[in-house]
Design a protein around this nucleic acid. Sequence first.
DNA 1: CAGTGGTCTAGACCACCGA
DNA 2: CGGTGGTCTAGACCACTGG
Lengths: 236, 236
Amino acid sequence: MPNTSLPAYEQVKAFIKAQINNGSWRPGDAVPSESALQAQFGISRMTANRAVKELAVEGVVKRVKGSGTVVAQLHRISSTLQIRDIHEEILEREHAHTARVIRVEAVRADAAMAQVFKLRTGARLFHSVMVHFEEGVPIQMEDRHVNPAVAPNYLEADFTETTPTRYLLEHAPLTEASYSIEATLPSPEETRCLGLKRGEPCLVMTRRTVSGPHVASLARLVYPGIRYSFGGKFQL
Amino acid sequence: MPNTSLPAYEQVKAFIKAQINNGSWRPGDAVPSESALQAQFGISRMTANRAVKELAVEGVVKRVKGSGTVVAQLHRISSTLQIRDIHEEILEREHAHTARVIRVEAVRADAAMAQVFKLRTGARLFHSVMVHFEEGVPIQMEDRHVNPAVAPNYLEADFTETTPTRYLLEHAPLTEASYSIEATLPSPEETRCLGLKRGEPCLVMTRRTVSGPHVASLARLVYPGIRYSFGGKFQL
DNA sequence: CAGTGGTCTAGACCACCGA
DNA sequence: CGGTGGTCTAGACCACTGG
């Protein structure tokens, strides 16, 4: 009873987590039912429900309708990987963000790009290439293709003032995104623009965004492997 | 009104998401208050609260106590990065998992390792090195240090039968974990064990797990950059 | 001050599960 | 069948925000 001021459902959550952490309840063991918790803590069922439901969302317990609640088998080591606008990310570290625009142009989709955007080969696409600097140090090279249907004036945007990510989010409501992170060796141009030495590896995030019916954008974000890492934390 | 059978709170969530996705409500715009939704949908306040609260958890809207709810500024492109036992991950792809144990031993902590584990320099640690294969192809090299306090019999485990991750999860309830993902060039030993060519880059995940009062384990997981990527998806 | 979200209650009906 | 979780209601008190 360390905190009587905590909300009741938080106290119930803390109690359950404590039983799991100190080993009293092993994975697969049953967790008290909502009505049992209701009686034990002198709370209403809605409050007990909220506590257990949130633990289920966090992956700590597993609920089966009609059957009961059990401690989750493997405590998931999971974490929310935030993919954010590089501008905001740098500002949050209280650093200065600058950008150098290398290329903004209209291009024709090759077969691979056409497939990504669900357009025909040769369809018109916008293409931008730029380098982002944090405190003057190159930290990301952004090579992006954009569907003209969602941002017809993309070529006129001033990307020293706003980022493509921000521009797109403001002009095309985001409905879906997928990404992958890989390690690769950069191309000669990427090596030069990021100020890398020969053979130095990079983290590459490829990100595809969807806005309503359209595939909005495909971005290839190249980070110097030695100056950048994706990280996260998870707490039970 | 496509689905009258959907739970009421899901209908409210769908309504709000639709307004955002079709551009009627822009980032920063106010979302109707709980009492307004209550009246509009003919539901109780608890139900309206649940709908908006879940959207807040998903990052679609932002709530400020006493002030109100607004559409989130930047729709977070976020995704749960699952960090899982490599054995389960491979089985889920319906592939065969095998492992080759290279080294299992007790070592003395150097200064850096001691700091990670919050032990004194020279303290006894367990150390294991192994390679995981998917369908016979090397896919991860795992170099792991383990705190003897949480797994005193670690050296006796048969890691061709179980993975260190699984062994630790079963012997030490997990309370906290942090990780980072970087791109690096592998060491000569890693290059050899993973069957890489010279200069081929790798994804390295460094993962630290905590169990109760102890730092349980520090793992360095090396993946061939060309054969592996971390990926995820996000849907509004 | 009135309006907001945060929390909570004491009921309720339902679909589902296992015995 | 009884117990479970999933959902919902119609109230309530509180702390906080803004004008």
